[in-house]
Design a binder for these strands. Structure first.
Lengths: 255, 255
DNA sequence: GCCTAGGTCCCGTGA
DNA sequence: TCACGGGGCCTAGGC
């Protein structure tokens, strides 16, 4: 399966430049393991002094520069930027330019351990489960997950202040605003919910606001009480039991 | 500089496993270009079907799985997780386990284009400029950037509701809360500022709230007016002129 | 451990 | 294009 892939060990700057051109032209993924320094200017600015890093250019022309530690790239450029490969003061210079916002990453490369152009054939589907959207679908189809007698009115409703996750009525006919959180509800979540509820309460003081989440932070709970909102414990895991995704593939739980 | 680095082209699963052990033992960075499928279970769940990807394990035991497009890894594990390399149903299985929260990534690898263990010697300093912190330092040393006569009281003050960027007094002695934003101030920023101001206004209705940012969104401006808060235009670029970083290295501007 | 806030956040969605 | 909210966000800093 090497097909159009090429790997060079300890290439010269010229060989690496040629490989980069080859990868960019053929929409292959390029990797360089190299000694480099990096300048970035754009929304912010940064300077990375000389050291050995991994430089990755993907076929969608995104750029990642990774150090030997850390989840995050030290410098990067999102997909779609333009690359210029040149030579400058004895170094191989790779410039990645993003149009909007205007941002420039300059990589000065002195020597290389490895350079590779890889053809990665990848059509595999990716599916994510246990998201906030899953919780929403579960509640819409099983309103009792919020409380007995709860009935959603519309799936979502746009208000001047933003969006409501779920709007409904309780068994007594009171308007209920439900805000879903996949993880612990914090103060921001309460404030968000309160914006909606406050707006609706103006014409109707009986409007209820319920935050449905696995748990709630201490300070969020204090705020919740002060604003006369309610908390309903609801986890993505419980919701997943009420929601069929894909071809009904059951979700495995952590063991 | 190859030193302890090793590169294998089209290795067998057994050779790749050996290389992974070697990299993990010697705290080298490991790269695999391989056909794989990936399961993730933890805070959420995901399934990635078979396809060719780049798998990176860093010396701090972080894991990145990159497809041939996109800035973000499709699956990952932050630093510090535990790796188990084994063989399962004809595949090389790499399992990365995170303790807290408990999360598991399973990578099933069928065949490999490339496997490398790289020793990346990297001691280069990284410095970032034009951050919110830079704006703060600039304002603390040059309070007139907010307005004539402004005087910071303390650098930062913790309130029951959170943190204040800068607290000070104006030329008439009124308390002033300043919230800094590096980019356009949105409604969330206004709400955040209002939380502090509202708290302080209870004992002192003359308290002012100023949001200092390059610009402000339309809806944030409306909210600002309604809450009797103020906007002061201030850019990170202007602030950078009043702040010396490192050895006084001047910041280049975009040209 | 929890909680808060920032980020060159990225990314999708909708106006 | 801007604006807004979600994310397995990650990461740093307090407590």
């Amino acid at each position: 399966m090497l097909s159009r892939s090429k790997v060079l060990i300890k290439p010269s700057q010229e060989q690496a430049a040629e490989l980069l051109h080859y990868a960019l032209q053929n929409q292959l993924l390029a990797i360089l393991a190299c000694n480099c320094k990096v300048d970035y200017h754009g929304r912010a600015s940064s300077r990375l002094e000389w050291g050995e890093r991994l430089v990755i250019i993907k076929r969608d022309r995104s750029l990642l520069i990774h150090r030997n530690t850390g989840y995050e790239p030290v410098n990067w450029q999102p997909p779609g930027c333009l690359f210029h490969v040149s030579f400058s003061e004895g170094n191989l210079l790779v410039r990645a330019v993003r149009k909007s916002p205007h941002e420039v990453v300059d990589i000065f490369i002195s020597d290389l351990q490895l350079a590779a152009a890889l053809e990665l054939s990848d059509y595999g589907a990716f599916a994510m489960y246990l998201t906030e959207e899953d919780m929403k679908q579960a509640v819409l189809k099983n309103p009792f997950l919020i409380e007995e007698g709860f009935q959603p009115i519309t799936e979502e409703r746009s208000l001047p202040t933003g969006f409501v996750d779920i709007l409904g009525r309780d068994s007594k006919g009171n308007l209920v605003v439900v805000e879903l959180k996949r993880e612990s509800a914090d103060r921001e979540a309460i404030i968000q919910l309160y914006r909606y509820v406050e707006h609706l309460r103006k014409g109707n003081p009986s409007v209820r606001g319920i935050i449905a989440a696995p748990k709630i932070t201490k300070s969020a709970h204090i705020l919740l009480k002060a604003l006369k909102l309610e908390f309903k414990q609801l986890t993505p895991e419980v919701c997943s039991k009420y929601v069929k995704r894909g071809e009904g593939e059951p979700l495995k739980s952590l063991t």
